[in-house]
Simulated assay, not measured.
Amino acid sequence: MLGIFSAVGSFISGVVSTVGSFIASSATRLVTRLPEVVLVARVVIDVIATVISKVAEVLGIAPKDENPEELGAKSMQEGTRPRSDFESTQEYLDYLRKDVKLDEEKYAKMCPEQKIACSVLGTTMVAKSIEEKTGVELPPEFLETIYKSKLRHDQVERCINSFADNGISSMGEMTKYITNDLSEDEASKVGGVIKDSLKELSPSMTDAEIQQEIVAMKRSYNESQY
């Protein structure tokens, strides 16, 4: 029997021609960061998908309460046109939203691994559309950090915009900050932007309380069970 990495990865590889190699590659990289146990992987991707979908909604590039898993399923359906080389991810997502009807019968018959693949793919596409909107990369390791550090959507959205304003091009830098993988100078810059972002969200918080919140993020990441 195929493990979850092989099963989900193989399913995603089948849609490379539709969504493009970059999206499929990013989705596969995210899969390798998920737990091997299907039920746990389901929980992890659901948390990530919910946060990313909400961030996209706040940014005005996704409808309210969208289910990324359904977007992924639509992209895999027979008859769905491939993404054009000249088309942005946002334009392709709008095509899936408006012009592709979900095949409810086939969707209901998907196995758990296939539905995880759909969720990973849909979440990756929405994350890419956020990248296009903000100019800040959301790599798979950061998407994983959303779950491990228990980040809220408002924290993610505020930090993305603050990173953009401060010339930090990847949210992977936030993951490196949380995991203490930055140089002293880099940590000072990235940490300062994160602290300012949290202060903007909660102006009444003291510097000590903000620092405690960051420590909690790091502790949660380190104590994650996978």
Rank of each mutant, 00 (worst) to 15 (best):
M76N: 02
V38K: 09
K109G: 01
R83W: 06
L198G: 04
V19C: 11
V136P: 01
C111K: 07
Y177C: 00
A7S: 13
Y95P: 01
P112N: 06
K54V: 10
I214C: 11
A24N: 09
I48N: 08
S17M: 10
V15K: 08
S183E: 14
A164T: 13
M217Q: 04
K101N: 05
L71V: 02
P82Q: 03
V51C: 09
K98D: 12
E186I: 00
S119Q: 10
R29G: 00
G135M: 01
S149F: 07
A187P: 07
K148D: 14
L96R: 01
Y107C: 03
D185L: 13
K150V: 15
S220M: 05
V190C: 11
K148S: 14
I214E: 06
S21T: 12
I146T: 08
S119K: 13
D94E: 15
K64N: 03
F5N: 13
L201W: 06
S75N: 02
S129L: 01
V31H: 11
L143V: 11
D181V: 00
E223C: 01
Y107Q: 00
S204P: 02
S119G: 03
E200K: 13
E200C: 02
E144T: 14
T123M: 03
S170H: 06
F11R: 14
M217V: 03
H153W: 15
V19P: 12
V31T: 13
T89R: 07
G192D: 07
E184C: 00
K74V: 01
L71F: 13
T179E: 14
G3Y: 06
M1S: 08
V215I: 12
R97A: 02
L93D: 11
L143D: 08
K189H: 06
S197N: 02
L121K: 03
E105I: 13
K195D: 01
D65R: 15
K150I: 15
M76D: 07
A24R: 09
S25N: 12
V215K: 15
M205H: 00
S26C: 00
A127M: 04
T206C: 05
S204R: 12
S17C: 01
T28E: 10
L121P: 09
V43N: 11
A127V: 01
G191A: 08
K64M: 02
V16H: 09
R42I: 02
T89K: 09
L96S: 03
I160L: 15
N161Y: 07
K199V: 02
R81S: 11
K189R: 14
G192V: 00
D154L: 13
D46P: 05
V55Y: 14
S75P: 03
L198C: 02
T89S: 08
P112D: 06
G20Y: 10
Y221L: 05
Y147T: 14
V100C: 08
S13M: 12
V37W: 12
